[in-house]
């Protein structure tokens, strides 16, 4: 049996919101160390990897490995009913045919409950090598989101090139071209948190990526910062780390070639 309680239902809401345009259904694999989801889009261009650590839950218990096959349209409907500061308790018995959601307001004066039918999903898992990328860029997720939104109007392919001093995001369209260059910096955002751009380059890199997917993966609500890992001719990795050791949401995106 699985039972997990998240202090904020909004955490799961944001995750589902961020992936639902890429995947329509996926297996949540649950064991005593946490919950993992790995799923590709239908065109096998992008892969979503979610890891939620049991330690990041307020309460977590899973005595037997259990796979929950979830339809994201149904899950979105359920999560829409949670207020942002509600807590969320997930429950499933070993049969894995239903998932139960309980949302509870902070004051405990409102409790809502939903039961969702699960499905059997024949998923193909890929083994993702632990790659030491040539370029690691850490930046504000709001900045990354702004760059993707701005440049998406100009073309379908984003070229990202990085050297030791800067990273350049560029796009060439039929009638116009646009680019944004970022250099390492440190600024304070409106919450008085330090938001820095750091660029670590072992080897100069130049990759072409689908603008449509990048725009989907640029999501400032998931975490304050995002990490981009790049290397020539290797799928790029876009990574969001959740606070309080809850885990990570990774997007892998296959490059475009000539």
């Amino acid at each position: 049996m699985l039972e997990g309680r998240l202090t904020h239902a909004s955490t799961l809401k944001k995750i589902v919101e961020a992936v639902k345009d890429v995947i329509s259904e996926a297996n949540f694999d649950c064991n005593d160390s946490g919950i993992t989801l790995q799923c590709m889009d239908s065109g096998h261009v992008a892969l979503v990897l979610l890891q939620l650590n049991s330690d990041g839950f307020e309460d977590y218990r899973c005595d037997r490995n259990i796979t929950l096959g979830i339809n994201f349209a149904a899950l979105t409907k359920v999560l829409k009913c949670a207020a942002n500061d509600d807590s969320l308790t997930l429950k499933a018995d070993d049969s894995g045919d239903r998932l139960n959601f309980v949302f509870e307001s902070q004051k405990g004066d409102r409790v809502s409950e939903f039961d969702m039918k699960l499905m059997t999903i024949d998923a193909e898992l890929l083994s993702i090598p632990d790659n030491d990328y040539d370029v690691t860029i850490k930046m504000s997720s709001a900045e990354f989101s702004r760059i993707c939104k701005d440049l998406a109007n100009f073309g379908e392919t984003m070229n990202i090139s990085a050297d030791k001093e800067s990273v350049r995001f560029g796009v060439e369209g039929d009638v116009s071209a646009a680019s944004v260059v970022l250099r390492p910096n440190e600024t304070i955002d409106e919450d008085e948190k330090i938001v820095s751009t750091s660029i670590m380059v072992k080897k100069e890199t130049n990759v072409n990526l689908s603008m449509k997917f990048l725009k989907t993966f640029a999501n400032s609500s998931l975490a304050g910062s995002v990490t981009l890992e790049l290397q020539d001719d290797i799928p790029c990795l876009i990574k969001y780390v959740f606070p309080n050791d809850l885990g990570v949401l990774c997007f892998y995106l296959a490059p475009k070639g000539d």
């Binding site: 890929l126 083994s127 090598p129 799928p235 892998y252 296959a254 475009k256």
Partner: peptide
């Protein structure tokens, strides 16, 4: 135009 590659050519089946 650039051609979109698929992840299958980089990651093997587990």
């Amino acid at each position: 135009a650039k051609v979109q590659n698929r992840l299958d050519s980089y990651f093997k089946k587990a």
